[in-house]
Design a binder for these strands. Structure first.
Length: 332
DNA sequence: GTCCAGGACCTAG
DNA sequence: CTAGGTCATGGA
């Protein structure tokens, strides 16, 4: 094993696979699998990829492995302070206390029973914001592809640990070339707002992001230029922070709430996407037509102080389990 | 081929 | 405030 550094963290009740692969962050992949290989959009219930994952947090490549209530972290370079990882994985969060605040109804009980151990991460604001600008009307597997291309082409290279090459036989079908730098199997940091702001729209479109390219470009300019100060959002209220995010092109209520929840830790934020909307309608309002506004009000009032956490449980629950009766109509 | 994807935005009623 | 069209791209 190459140099690097390793540490262990007590992590009871932590479903690493669900947490890293359930669509709140887009840069994690099973360790030792080539970037081009990808992995299924929806992990099946209880799916474990050997519990070994790799990704990049800020400027650091890291490998994570879950072993019976312990998470083992390995980096490429020596670390004397692991606070960045504690913060990202939110080791200090007491999951039981959060689950206790969930409404005591059948849908939530089912979701918690099915997804226990699912956590919320605390991500870098710009990476989270940019990623979710790219997320609109895209499947999670595609968001990962777009983000990977963006990082390969415009992110700073970071040293990668482990030994990918020796642990994986040459793939039978070589992956299609995805840019000049991606072929080496290297790792890259997420490109800064300033770097994205320096791109042309054509360069961004070449990362397969389509009509989202101008949104990302304009938002990057506003962030890099200081017109929207992402650091300041940490010290103002959730509602005020939301108003700031809504100034950015390509950012509506849903994406703003994702950033508030996944990057700033505003746990009252409740992103409503197509999956959560389906879950709310079918689990809480079966065969009754509910207006969009009524649904939003219900979501705001029903799920308590950790509504965002509840939302992630509902999201993961319906995506992994599917929705019971009406969701899969037989094709006569 | 069709439908849909962790939407936002613009226009018209 | 709601309804519909538009924007790219690729899974399923």
């Amino acid at each position: 094993m190459s140099a690097g550094c390793q540490a262990e963290f007590s992590a009871p009740d932590y479903d690493l696979a669900a947490t890293l692969a359930s669509g709140q962050a887009f840069r994690w992949r099973p360790f030792g699998v080539p970037a081009s290989a990808g992995f299924p959009d929806r992990l099946k219930a209880g799916h474990r990829t050997g519990g070994e994952w790799e990704g990049v947090i800020g400027p650091r490549w890291v490998r994570l492995e879950l072993r019976a209530d312990v998470i083992v972290a390995q980096t490429a370079r020596p670390q004397h302070d692991w606070q960045w990882l504690r913060e990202y994985l939110q080791f200090d969060v007491n999951l039981s206390e959060i689950l206790r605040t969930f409404p005591d109804d059948t849908p939530m009980r089912d979701a918690v029973a099915a997804c226990r151990g699912l956590r919320l991460l605390r991500q870098e604001p710009w990476e989270c914001l940019a990623s979710f600008i790219l997320s609109s009307t895209k499947q999670i597997v595609q968001i990962r592809q777009i983000v990977a291309l963006l990082c390969e082409r415009f992110g700073e290279p970071v040293p990668r640990g482990g030994n990918l090459q020796s642990s994986h036989a040459p793939s039978p079908r070589p992956s299609p070339p995805v840019g000049e730098r991606g072929k080496t199997g290297g790792a890259f940091a997420f490109p800064s707002a300033a770097r994205i702001a320096a791109c042309t729209e054509a360069e961004l479109r070449a990362c397969k992001m389509g009509f989202r390219a101008p949104y990302l470009l304009k938002s990057a300019r506003k962030v890099a230029g200081g017109e929207v100060n992402l650091e300041r959002l940490k010290i103002i209220s959730c509602a005020e922070a939301r108003d700031e995010l809504l100034k950015l092109p390509g950012v509506g209520r849903k994406i703003a709430d994702c950033v508030l929840l996944f990057a700033y830790g505003f746990q009252e934020a409740f992103p409503v996407d197509v999956w959560v909307r389906k879950a709310l309608r079918q689990l809480y309002f079966p065969r009754r037509r509910v207006t969009e506004k009524r649904l939003a009000r219900f979501a705001a009032e029903h799920f308590g102080p950790n509504a965002g956490y509840a939302q992630q449980y509902l999201f993961h629950f319906v995506r992994t389990r599917g929705l019971p009766p009406v969701a899969r109509p037989a094709k006569a």
